[in-house]
Every structure is written in structure tokens, then in C-alpha cells.
Simulated scan of single mutants.
Amino acid sequence: MGGRRSVRDQPPHVRRADAAQRQKLLRVRGRSVAWLPPLLLLVVIAVLDWNTSGEFRIISWIVLVPGVAAAICGVWGTAVLAVLSLAAYFIVDASWPHQYQTGLPDFILVAVGGVLAVLACAVRVRGEQRMLHMRDVAETTRRTVLRPLAPGWGDLDHAAVYLSADSEARVGGDFYDIQPGLHGTRVLLGDVQGKGLAAVEAAAALLGTFREAAYHEPLLHTVADRLEIRMQRHVRYTAALGRGDSDRFATAMLIGFPKATPEAPDTIEVVNFGHEPPLVVAPDGVRSLPPGDGLPLGLCELTHGLPPVLSVALDRGETLLLVTDGVTEARDAGGVFFPLHEIVAKAVAQDPRTADPHVLVRFVRDGTLRHSGDHLADDTTIFAVRRP
């Protein structure tokens, strides 16, 4: 986001070769050449059979051609290749003397193989269409929950990486947003306890409340209160439906960028709902914000109230780095957690440009995947913002 496009991509280990990707690989200058491999196989089998002795015939291997076509071609392409295979078998086999012909049994084998290949291709194509439709639904859901943020939205430079632990769902319980309003810009990042559609639903509820409250409410404390009430209402509603969400909660960081005043030109406000405190990344070093002692959203009624609103100085050259536990709890093969603070501090010391939000989120993403061996045990969000 910010001045460039946001990065919300799947890690390399979950990028599966779906129908669209396969079609790209089997195209030359925009035209499909998926028919070429099975056709070449047909020609090779026919030529080899023509050049073998009568005692060793391989023409019945031509039944492989429709099978290969079923894996990479469309239904009509597979049907055409099945017919061509049957015709090639008949022509080649009839060209041999009678005593060397493989005859009717192998002809039936090729015919039945062709029919089965066409049926298998139809099933495959229908499954791919269903998969692509479900991916469209997942993408729409992701864009609804994690809406695209325009460059410079809220007068902030920002960048984000979202990596779903579920390669098919593409969206989980992590959430983030920026909402400019009448009293400055507010930023929210959080992680709903649990996974699946229930976590997505809770995240969507919190984001909807945040977008309204952050725009209208003059005090960040009021925005925090609205979020806490919304989480409690959501838990009660889902529990009334008998879904067993009575213990669901969400850790979150709520940050306010007030309009600058002469008294506090570079101050932000922070409310920590039991989340990992952000790092402040600057060209001259890295520091962590105060951890705070607040409980997660949905659990604040167990204490005397909401977490306090902390005022923190943040210079315009400093970037706030917010992550979910997919980063902080990433482990290597030896069970060692990803040392985020140390890794970022070392990188900034070597190259101060790492503090740029776009560079920073990519660096943390690559480091997390490398440390965990491209295996994400949880949804992972990396979000960086700064005043331009």
C-alpha cells in the first residue's frame, strides 16, 4: 500500500498448480498447445510400432494418449484425441499382415480407454471450475474483510502482507485497517482467537464497528469501548445460536494518529488489547512500544475496565511495525522462535532503507518464511505505517 501496491500473497509453499496456472504453462503466444503432448505421443507410438518386428507390437499403448489428454486438455480436445487414437490404431494395425495384427481385443481396449478418458476429463474440468469458483468466493471474502487501502490512505505511508495458513481459505482471523476520520487517523490490527469461518465472522464484525467509530468518535478511548462492546455482543449472539463461541476473544492494537498540534506535533495514542506491542523502526535503530497490561477484546469485563490510552512520541521518520502471532510464534526446526526485534535491528543497521514500510514488510515476510521453513502454523499479518 502507501505509494505502491500492497502485498497480500500466499507463501511459495502453498502456491498450487491450479487450472489457470496450467493453462498459462500450456499456451504459446496466447494460444493453447495442450493438445501437442498427447498428439506427439500418438505419433511416436505409431512410428515405433511401424518400425518394430511383428512379434513385438506396441500399438495398444496408444490407449495412453487419451489418458494424457484427459489430464491437460479440455473435454472436446480429449474426445478428438480419443477418436484419433482409435483411427490410428485401426490404420496401423490393418497395415500389418493378418498373423501379426493385435485384433479386436486391443481395439476394444483403446475404445473403452478413450471413453473413460473423456469421462475423467469431464469430471476434472468440473472440479477445476468449482475450485476456481470457490477461490473467487474466498477472494471476495478477503476483500470484504481486508479491504484494499489506497496509497497514502489516511495521510499515512503503509504496507501490508497477509499470509493465510490455509492455502484454500485465503483469509482467517487476522484483521487490519486504516480509517481516516474527523479527529485524525486510526489504525487497527488484531487476531481473533480460533480459526475458520467463525473467526472470519468475528473479524468482520470488529472491522465494521471500527470503521464507523474511528471516523466519528473524538476520543480513542471511546473507539476502544465500542470495539469491546461489539466483541461481547458478537460472542453473545453466536452463543445464542448454539455455536459454542462463548470463549472467543481477539487481541488487538488500536492506534490513533491525532491531527498535529503545536503542543504534540509527533504524538500517537495506543490502546493494547493483549497484543504483541509494535516495534518502532527508524534508520537509527529499533525500539518496542510499552507492552501494556490490557486483556483481549471480549474479556475486558473480567477486569475493572479497558486498557489505558498511552501517548507515545513517534517521529515522522519512524515506522510502526505491527505483526500477529504468525510472526512472533514462527519456529524453526529446532523449535526456536523467530527473533523479530534482533533481525529487524540488524537489518536496519546494515541498510537504513529497511525502515521504509514497503521494504520492511517484505523483509519480515521473507525472514518469517525462511525461519519456519515455509511452514506457517497460523495466519500471519505484517503491517507497517508511518507519517510521510
Results as ranks from 00 to 15, higher is better:
G274I: 02
V280N: 00
A260T: 14
C300D: 06
G285F: 13
A345P: 00
E217M: 13
T324P: 07
P265R: 07
I255P: 03
E329G: 09
I255Q: 03
H275I: 05
S246P: 03
T238K: 09
E212Q: 13
D247T: 10
D332I: 10
A252Y: 01
A250Y: 03
V235L: 09
A214S: 03
A252C: 05
T267E: 14
D332E: 14
G242D: 08
L220K: 00
G274Q: 04
L295N: 06
G294Q: 02
L227A: 09
R233G: 09
L295K: 06
A330V: 04
A224K: 06
V344R: 00
T261Q: 04
V286Y: 00
E276L: 07
I255W: 03
A252G: 03
H275E: 06
D293R: 13
R287E: 10
P339A: 13
H234A: 13
A260Q: 14
R226I: 03
L340K: 02
S288M: 04
H221D: 14
T267Q: 12
T328I: 12
L302K: 15
A347E: 11
P278A: 11
P308D: 14
L254K: 00
G326W: 02
P218D: 04
N272W: 01
H221Q: 15
R248P: 00
R248C: 08
V280R: 02
I343V: 14
A214T: 01
V348K: 02
L241C: 11
L299T: 07
P290M: 11
V286G: 01
I268E: 00
I343M: 14
G285W: 11
V348D: 01
V235Q: 10
D325P: 07
L297R: 02
G285K: 08
T324W: 09
T328Q: 08
R211W: 05
F338I: 06
P307R: 06
V336L: 15
A264W: 05
P265F: 04
R243A: 12
D332L: 10
D247L: 05
D284K: 05
I229L: 13
A282G: 12
F337Y: 15
G244H: 12
E269K: 02
E263R: 05
E263S: 09
G326N: 01
P218W: 02
P291K: 13
E342I: 10
G305A: 12
R226Q: 11
R230F: 05
I229H: 07
A213L: 01
R243S: 10
A250F: 07
L314Q: 01
D315I: 05
D293P: 03
I255C: 04
S246W: 06
F338C: 09
T319H: 01
V270S: 11
E217W: 00
T328K: 10
G292V: 03
E301Q: 08
L306D: 01
A260F: 11
V312L: 12
M253D: 13
E212V: 15
E342Y: 13
P277V: 11
L299R: 09
G292A: 11
R211P: 07
V223S: 02
G298L: 06
V270L: 14
R243Y: 08
H275F: 10
K259C: 11
D266I: 01
T251W: 00
R226F: 04
V309S: 09
A252K: 00
E301K: 08
G285A: 12
V280L: 06
L314C: 10
A250H: 04
G242A: 12
E301I: 02
G317P: 04
H234C: 09
E318F: 05
P308I: 08
